[in-house]
Amino acid sequence: MFIAAMVGVLVTMLLALVAAVRGPTVYDRILAVNMFGTKTVLLIAVAGFLAGRPEFLDLALVYALVNFIGTIAVLKFARFGSLGRDDHRGLL
């Protein structure tokens, strides 16, 4: 049954990839990329169980973390065109 979960996750990744390529606005792309990231987290978790060595879940945690940071960076860039500033213009 891990296979079924894996197939589901892979299909979702494909759909997210299509959405990321197609997305008319920047925010659609960000949304799709973010979703793609969470799906890779699931992919790693399921793949660990599928391969019979589920000890490497630290990896999935790193993916989730990095995905969040990437999304925030992209969003900040999309909104303000800069990464370092916080001149009380509101955050994201």
């Binding site: 973390l65 990095v66 969040f68 940071i69 925030i72 960076a73 900040k76 990464l83 370092g84 500033r85 916080d86 001149d87 955050l91």
Partner: peptide
């Protein structure tokens, strides 16, 4: 990355 997240959300200063 943790520090960078802090910098992104709270500002570089």
């Amino acid at each position: 990355a943790g520090f960078i997240l802090y910098g992104l959300i709270f500002g570089l200063d």
